[in-house]
Design a protein around this nucleic acid. Sequence first.
DNA 1: CAAAACATACCGTCTGGACGGTTTTTAAGC
DNA 2: GCTTAAAAACCGTCCAGACGGTATGTTTTG
Lengths: 199, 199
Amino acid sequence: MNRPQRKNNPDAVRARLLECAARLIVDEGLPALTLENVAREAGVSKGGLLHHYPGKNALIDGLFEEVVDWFEGQVEDALEPVETTPSRFSKAYLRVVAAIDMSVPEERRLAVLMLMLSSDPHYCARWNQWVEARLQRHAETDLTPFARTLRLAADGLWLSDLGGGPDSNPSVRREILAFLEHLDATEAIPAGSPEQGGQ
Amino acid sequence: MNRPQRKNNPDAVRARLLECAARLIVDEGLPALTLENVAREAGVSKGGLLHHYPGKNALIDGLFEEVVDWFEGQVEDALEPVETTPSRFSKAYLRVVAAIDMSVPEERRLAVLMLMLSSDPHYCARWNQWVEARLQRHAETDLTPFARTLRLAADGLWLSDLGGGPDSNPSVRREILAFLEHLDATEAIPAGSPEQGGQ
DNA sequence: CAAAACATACCGTCTGGACGGTTTTTAAGC
DNA sequence: GCTTAAAAACCGTCCAGACGGTATGTTTTG
């Protein structure tokens, strides 16, 4: 309602482009991600798409960065206020992943990230870079085996979200999370002994 | 040395075809999986490849089934003899995944499975079917949250194997496994209360 | 009017697959 | 055991369609 008579709205178009690309990947698989499909779904011509993103790679790159940014924000928000909380980062990581509701388009994009990660070594490397940077920032709290296990389990959940595995069932998921939190409250966890990083 | 003078050896050719397809996917990415590439790598013509597998899908299907069969055998072998061992199946699952050495071509195929799982919903469904069948067979021991967590973590490790994430480091991995086994030896785990299956 | 935001038409390449040969292996008939 | 016919294994070529990308308009915006 800001400017109703304005016909062009490039920012909205770019957003729609990314949105549609994500939807295509998740719902119809990677091979369905063609310039023509994305353009059609977004109600633009292929030329129009190519105008905003000068190539397929640029499109995917844009998608990647958008999703990572979003995820980063989510994790940041999920961080507990007490900075010395054990496994602080990994807990937030798990919380965000576990909260994914695939019926919400916004959150569905995380599936895109997972897809890109497992299919393209390039994005995989960039993702690892991101994770390791966070890990370094939270070295005091998140280098313990328990923290790693939390993130590992989160990745497992994440993966199961992609294909609706047996662990994507909400009630099962709740049970797993409850178990993990129960573990957290137990002294069964050995004292955090951050290992010297192996490169 | 069975039949040295035999020029044709279709079974060996089929095996090489699958082998090369797997290598191509893992080393050069999914888009490198073309009929021509596979045929050339296997030392066969495209026509020859099409003779054994009447289409690309047939090739991929063959690869999928072979890998699943291999994984199934590995897990079967890793099963503890005592049938009532808690989390029996999930422990074997984790053991197999954790033992993956990406430098061994045979084991590298698991990466192929992961790739196919995350890229094609169809194979994802078939995989879920496999897992749920096993879960049903081991319902007495593997429906607990701890068992699920084990498999989730295994999936996380599996995924990290693909792109060499921070958890693919051997020493880190050992530490995680040790932690998981430590947990297993603890009474921190609530009694197994198999939830009623949700569909 | 200039630049950005689109659309249309088109091209080159690649890939899956069809098709028709050729050679090898197997099986049958004698 | 030898001949021969058929089936299986395999090759090389060609083609239709899809896809990414370019080139060239046309409209909108400032």
